[in-house]
Nucleic acid binder design. Structure first.
Lengths: 339, 339
DNA sequence: TTGTAAGCGTTATCAT
DNA sequence: ATGATAACGCTTACAA
């Protein structure tokens, strides 16, 4: 293999070496069917010999396709980077895309200047976008979704009315929460408190709704609610506030394992036994659930699959295929020692 | 603001509207100093009016600069995605780059076909690359680093001899580990075991070296060592193996908080008191350290800063600036209840 | 300070 | 099945 000095080899040079025209080389590179096998052979050899790599920019310019997909993460969501759920979704996206010819562009969307992001997306820099957000300020992306291929991870919080003309990969948070809370009811708990996520996030809203539904259905008074912000520390603080209230309770449904884990720390501090005094159920089934003591009963959901599915759908969307608007991923109750 | 239908507005149209040549518009867009203020004004207005966004591909092609930076994560490293340390580094990179005009391309480098990645990097698709790897198989990138601007996060494990002609942002893992272990010695511990990371990763090697150094210096026999693979589960298993050995010990230095956290679970299972029976020190100061019971004494390091610093350096490198080869970030012992 | 014009390396449209 | 040749939208000497 000879690496010719003086600039990367171009289509032109490959053509010269193979003794064909540039068009033909281009056809081979793009594996067009209408090329004689022998010619394909010759061209490929020339390519190998020169170590030719197609110039992306030129390709984009000429073909008007970027082969790039943006993964957009709003700034206020980005602080959840180290949330295992979140990290896993990103991981799923990256892995799935690594198997294609698409390049993944990671975009942190500034809150102050989110025109910048919209311009980037509209400016023909990407073929499509994946939007990963828990927050309600993503309305602008819903509009964008009518202009270009976009797949959302989790339904946008603020746009329930438009939710059927966009593409969403999600779990049924409400139904899953119902299963979790029903489990507590089945165990004989009657005063069930809730540690919620911030209510500007769709999963937080839905999980709380599921909690409320089950209590109503069972004819139970809703227990106290505190916001735990989806973080362990927030969960701990929420637990402290719950314990500081007048209302008593014999169970807590936390909208995430991280919050449940934080809450558990506080319960232990206060000498309360779990599940004897207070039963606890979380959501996610991540490491925080399995490693806590006692291990936390929770709802399992498949974040990596969510990521791969999002990538998968977007690619098909870009290819002009018809794909389902809403993909609901399965969830499952995992019973452990905390309930 | 009028959005003209029929294709995105081009430089040409802006030029027409502003009554100048394309070159002038180009100059304004690239904020060249040599343009009359009034002309700048007119052009900017035309740009705003048309909602003009420069075409990246065309720009790349003409200028031979991509304004893109690759963040390369080898596949076997990618499974650490949800490691808080790792996630924070990525977050730091993304945030820093979001403040520049650079686009971040996230690349999962396949182990089976890592020629693909190298080709991508060399093929003029990016202006530079950030390599994030704990593993030893990154030798190829060290070579690449002589061809193009590359900054490593953590020193490459396999290339200690070439380490001074590459750019690295790291902490002094060995010195930090020494501080951690010395702390145990100072507390009167004499039989100090080690839960290590996989030895093909530089931080694992360095932290173990630090452990060994302190023991030698103190005239203590090195305690038993088990590999915990940098994961909580691995840490738990390593702890079980340690306890299954004949050697006794009164302290454990784990090379990460995740492993320490897993180890702690096992110690509790066995009814061993921490720190009374066995003292424990970890590394990272992430949530696993703070939320464990008891909270884990550990070494704090700044992963987000590592990410921002890497991005910062690479940008300066691309701009042709002279930058330091090795940037060592500060670490600090955080004493908690486990020691 | 501004304009002209020649690329940048592909793809795509037509012929052949 | 293959080859000319014109785009693609921008940057950049070079001229003016």
């Amino acid at each position: 293999m000879t690496i010719s000095a003086g600039g990367a080899p171009t289509l032109e040079k490959v053509a010269a070496l193979a003794g064909v025209s540039r068009s033909t080389v281009s056809r081979v590179v793009n594996s067009s069917p209408k090329v004689a096998p022998e010619v394909v052979q010759a061209v490929n050899q020339a390519i190998a010999e020169l170590g030719y790599v197609p110039n992306r920019a030129a390709r984009m310019l000429a073909s008007r396709r970027t082969q790039t997909i943006a993964l957009v993460i709003p700034e206020n969501t980005a602080r959840f980077f180290s949330d295992p759920f979140f990290a896993s979704v990103i991981q799923g996206v990256a892995f799935r895309l690594a198997q294609t010819d698409y390049t993944l562009s990671l975009v942190i969307a500034s809150e102050t200047d989110h025109e910048k992001t919209r311009r980037y997306l509209r400016g023909g820099n990407v073929d499509g976008a994946l939007i990963l957000s828990h927050h309600s300020d993503d309305t602008s992306y819903v509009e964008l979704a009518r202009t270009m291929p976009i797949v959302f991870g989790g339904r946008p919080a603020a746009a329930p009315e438009n939710v059927d003309d966009i593409y969403v990969v999600d779990v049924d948070n409400e139904a899953a929460a119902e299963v979790a809370v029903q489990h507590l009811v089945d165990r004989g708990r009657t005063r069930i408190a809730h540690i919620s996520g911030r209510q500007d996030m769709a999963p937080a809203q839905d999980r709380m709704a599921g909690w409320r539904t089950v209590l109503e259905r069972a004819g139970l008074e809703p227990g106290p609610v505190e916001d735990g912000d989806f973080t362990p520390i927030g969960g701990a603080e929420a637990m402290r506030r719950l314990l500081g209230r007048r209302e008593t309770f014999d169970a807590v449904f936390a909208a995430s394992d991280q919050m449940a884990s934080g809450a558990l720390t506080v319960l232990r501090e206060r000498g309360l036994r779990v599940p004897d005094d207070i039963a606890l159920v979380g959501f996610d089934n991540d490491y925080f659930a399995t490693s806590s003591v006692p291990a936390i009963t929770t709802i399992e959901q498949p974040p990596v699959v969510q990521g791969t599915t999002m990538a998968e759908l977007l690619v098909r969307l870009i290819d002009g295929e018809e794909v389902e608007r809403l993909t609901v991923l399965p969830t499952q109750l995992v019973v452990r020692d905390s309930s």
